[in-house]
Every structure is written in structure tokens, then in C-alpha cells.
Amino acid sequence: MSYGAAKQGWVRVCSLADIVPDTGVCALVHGEQVAVFRIGQRDLYAIDNFDPIANAAVLSRGLIGSLGERVVVASPIHKQHFDLRSGECIEAPEHSVRAWSVQLGDGDQVLIR
């Protein structure tokens, strides 16, 4: 991680190669579980890993897809959809999750803030 990224509060969670395209992984960032998704070759998204409807930390294991223009993950338990850009739960917005800032740093390192 570059000095500038560390100084701005970015946390290195893994390298891009550690995430198979069109899947997610779970990372611990500041004591919180974050679901990090790689869409295609280089697009990254991050939301809370905790599914508030199922009351379980499972979103990183969900199925990635799209609903119209929205890139979403379907929870593996009850199948509700979470927008990967905003964290909004499509079927029940009151159960939305946090969307985290994510970027690709030096040496293809995945950074979260």
C-alpha cells in the first residue's frame, strides 16, 4: 500500500488476484465484516457482510447479478437483493446496509475505507 493511501485511512484487504471474478470475499476492516466483490476483471464494490433480514454474516457468499441497471448481490439465505453501489436492500429498503469505499491501489491491492 502506498504511503498516501495509508495516510488517507485506506486499509489493504487483499490483492485483486485473491478474488475470483464475479464473486465476493469477506474482509475484516476496523473490526467490521465487509463483503468485497469483484465484477468482471477490475470493478470492485464493498458493502457490509451482515444480512439484517437473515441476521447472519453471509452477503459475501451471495450470488451476483443485475436488476435493470443495478449491480446486486442476492443473499444466500432469503434471496433479497442488495445494490452493490449503495447498499440498498431492493425488497426492503429499511434493511439496507452500508456501502464502503473501495479502490484498487498500487500493485493491484484492494483498499477499503
Rank of each mutant, 00 (worst) to 15 (best):
R42L: 03
H95W: 08
A57V: 08
V58D: 01
I90N: 05
L44V: 06
F82G: 09
D43L: 00
G68F: 07
I47F: 14
H78R: 15
E88C: 07
V97C: 11
L67C: 10
S75N: 09
S86M: 03
D43R: 09
I53Q: 12
Q80L: 05
F82K: 07
Q41M: 11
F82Y: 15
L63N: 13
I90K: 06
V58T: 04
H78E: 14
C89V: 10
A46V: 00
S86Q: 13
V73M: 08
C89Q: 04
D43Q: 14
Q80P: 07
C89M: 03
H81A: 07
R61I: 01
G87F: 04
G87L: 04
I64K: 06
V97S: 08
S66P: 02
L63M: 15
S86H: 06
G65S: 14
E88H: 07
I53C: 02
H78N: 15
Y45C: 02
L63P: 00
D48M: 06
A92Y: 11
I53E: 10
H78P: 08
S60W: 07
D51W: 02
E69Q: 04
I90Q: 03
S96R: 03
P52I: 01
D48Q: 11
Q80R: 12
Q41W: 14
A54I: 00
F82R: 04
C89A: 04
A92T: 13
N49A: 15
S60R: 02
S60C: 14
